[in-house]
Simulated scan of single mutants.
Amino acid sequence: MVKRKNFFKSLLFFLMIVAIVAFCIFPFGQMLSLSLKYSWDWGNPSWIPKKINLEAYSELLNIGTDMKTVPESVRMLLEESPDLTAAQKKTIIAKYRNTGDIFPFFKYFRNSALVSFIASFISVCFAIFGAYAFSRLKFIGRSVIQRGVLFVYMFGGILLLIPLYRILASLGFLGTPGGTMASLILVYVVQTLPVSLYMLGNYFRTIPYSIEEAAMIEGLSRFGTIIKIIIPLSIGAIFTVFIYCFMIAWNEYMFASVFLKSFKNLYTLPLGLKTLFVSKNAIWDRIMAASMMTAIPVMILFMSIQKNLTQGLSAGGVKE
């Protein structure tokens, strides 16, 4: 009876895990399947396309699309005119190219990566020193400040949007592209810093203080202890916080849609997907392909350092 009971418990646990994994994978599988289907195959409920369509990806990445809008007579002329240089052929092709059909994926990708990386890096740097102060130093009002940093999450982003926009606009930051990008990065740092402080502070408390005392006896300063002791022992937790901040900034839409409305060249990927959805090129395979290419970088980033995350979260201290 005991073995049978354990077997059913294990089976139930296994089925729950499978259900959770399937629930998480389903949206991505549906996006990938639809992005690889032709329009005549969109009604097919199967995830496997009858014929794989890569045109959506090639169009979004601007691969092999130069000659599609060139008339057949001009193509023959280009092929049969060996006297034309490569630059001249490129100029002729550019005249027939419809720039309105081009989705600037790489520009949006660069903007999102730049904003997300800078905001995440700044947030993690502040969080390391702030979390160390909360977990190790004793000063008046420490508990109040430590709990107060999470107070920002009591207000929704929509309530902070208008005050932040008016403050930054009155300071003149939103009048230039550089100031607008800096303002958006500042907003993302404010959004992610409280939880970053909370997560790193809890982890730093698990590191025995005796390690720091030994380092200080050897002559290390407080700053040197953080750089040479705390950070190496907490590298897994720091990567975890960085990924959290990066994902928040990468997927954020509301603040970006307001702050960047006057600078289309600074649009991030979420804004780019919105413009694609409301444009004349709002075709489901292109929309799903763009969504997949937006989600892939974060998934690759997480999977590439997954081993470091699990190792770092379990290592870094000694038992006393």
Rank of each mutant, 00 (worst) to 15 (best):
L164W: 13
L164V: 07
V115Y: 04
M247H: 07
L161T: 10
Y188C: 10
S120R: 03
Y253P: 09
K261D: 03
F121C: 11
A119F: 08
M299N: 11
I48F: 00
M216N: 14
T275S: 11
K95F: 08
F259C: 05
Y209Q: 15
L186P: 09
F121P: 00
G148V: 07
I300M: 04
L137A: 15
L174V: 08
E218P: 11
G236H: 00
Y198A: 12
N62K: 10
T275C: 06
P71K: 08
L78I: 11
L260Q: 03
L54Q: 03
A214W: 00
L78C: 10
A56F: 02
I235L: 13
I185R: 00
I243K: 01
A86F: 10
F8R: 07
F105W: 08
K37L: 10
P270W: 01
T240W: 03
I235G: 07
V21D: 02
K9T: 15
A169L: 14
L269N: 00
V18C: 14
A133E: 12
M154F: 11
R136S: 07
M199C: 11
S143E: 13
I296L: 15
S262M: 14
E72Y: 03
P71R: 06
P232K: 09
D285V: 03
L54E: 04
T294S: 00
S10V: 04
Y153G: 04
N6H: 13
S221R: 12
S39K: 09
F134R: 00
T99W: 14
N202T: 08
Y198N: 08
E55N: 11
L61W: 08
F23V: 04
F277A: 09
E55M: 09
L271E: 05
A169N: 07
V278G: 08
F28V: 14
F259T: 10
L273I: 03
E213A: 13
V70H: 04
V144P: 09
M154P: 05
F8H: 13
T85C: 08
M154D: 07
S112F: 00
N202D: 02
S33T: 05
S58V: 07
P49R: 02
L77C: 10
A94Q: 05
A94W: 01
P270K: 06
P208M: 06
K5F: 13
K228V: 04
N44S: 12
F263G: 11
F14A: 15
K319R: 12
A215K: 03
D101V: 12
A19N: 06
L200E: 02
N202W: 08
